[in-house]
Simulated scan of single mutants.
Amino acid sequence: MKKNFVLISLLLIGLFSCDNDTDEQGPLPTISNYTVEGEHDHDSHERSLDEGEETELEMGGEAHIDAELAGQNLKTVLLDIHWGEGHTHDRVQSVEDSVQWTEKIEWNFGVEGGLTPEGIFPSNHDFHQHIDVPAEIDGKPVREGEYHFVLFLWDQDGNETQQALTVHVHAHEEEEAEL
């Protein structure tokens, strides 16, 4: 009887201590207040959000990427820019005489030359980066239209989150001279 009790106790201990791969890795990192603006759009941002207008970027100009990042030990931020109309994910696709702009830009925390000093993996970060909006790729003009700007965020445990914005990219409009 005592032997059965020990055997049953060991089985119960084993049953309740088994690792069923259900351990949680912690909360997902978060991206909030994510915006993409043209270099001259800072004053119009609130108006755009209130009126539901799409963000406009000018080819040959600069885009300002802003977001509030949070999580435990942030590791990597990736911006994936790709064609949004018809939603193809080809890396570079020529359409007639223009090329769809696709680009992946990665920033890291805790490395030399990264977003934070080497070994520093923050829990909060005010992300602000400037990127160039190309006017042409491989000698062909960039195709005008809607592009997706997808921002990915990973922490040290491999937890990931993402947020996407649709941005309209257009050619530089020359101002007409006044007569």
Rank of each mutant, 00 (worst) to 15 (best):
L28W: 03
E53R: 11
L49K: 15
H40A: 11
E53K: 09
F5M: 14
S48Y: 06
L10G: 10
D43T: 06
G38D: 11
D21I: 08
G38S: 11
S32C: 04
N20M: 14
N4Q: 15
G26R: 04
L7R: 13
G52M: 01
H45M: 09
S17F: 09
E37G: 02
E46N: 13
K3I: 15
G38M: 03
E39P: 00
K3T: 15
S9E: 11
T35P: 01
E39A: 05
F16Q: 06
L11R: 03
G14S: 13
S32G: 01
E51T: 12
Y34H: 02
L28S: 02
S44F: 04
E53D: 13
D50R: 09
N20S: 15
D43V: 02
L15F: 07
E24S: 15
C18H: 13
E39W: 01
T55D: 12
E24D: 11
T55F: 00
P29A: 07
V36L: 00
H42I: 02
D23L: 13
K3G: 12
Y34Q: 01
P27W: 03
S9G: 11
L49E: 15
I31W: 01
S32Y: 04
S44P: 01
L12E: 04
K2N: 14
T30C: 01
E54Q: 12
E37H: 00
S48M: 10
G14M: 08
I13S: 01
S17A: 15
F5A: 15
S48A: 07
L12C: 07
N33E: 05
E37P: 00
Y34R: 00
G26Y: 07
L28Q: 02
I8D: 03
F16P: 03
S9A: 15
T55Y: 04
G52P: 03
E37Y: 01
S17K: 04
L57F: 03
E24M: 07
L28F: 07
T35Y: 02
E51D: 15
K2Y: 12
H40C: 06
E24H: 11
P29Q: 02
E51W: 09
F16G: 06
E37D: 07
G52R: 02
G38R: 00
E46I: 10
L10N: 06
G52I: 04
I31G: 02
G26E: 06
V36P: 00
T35G: 02
S9W: 03
G38K: 00
V6S: 09
Q25R: 14
H42A: 05
S17C: 15
E51I: 05
D50H: 11
L7S: 13
E24V: 08
T22A: 09
D41Y: 03
D21K: 12
G14I: 03
G14A: 13
G52Y: 02
G14Y: 04
T22E: 12
E54P: 01
H45D: 03
S48C: 08
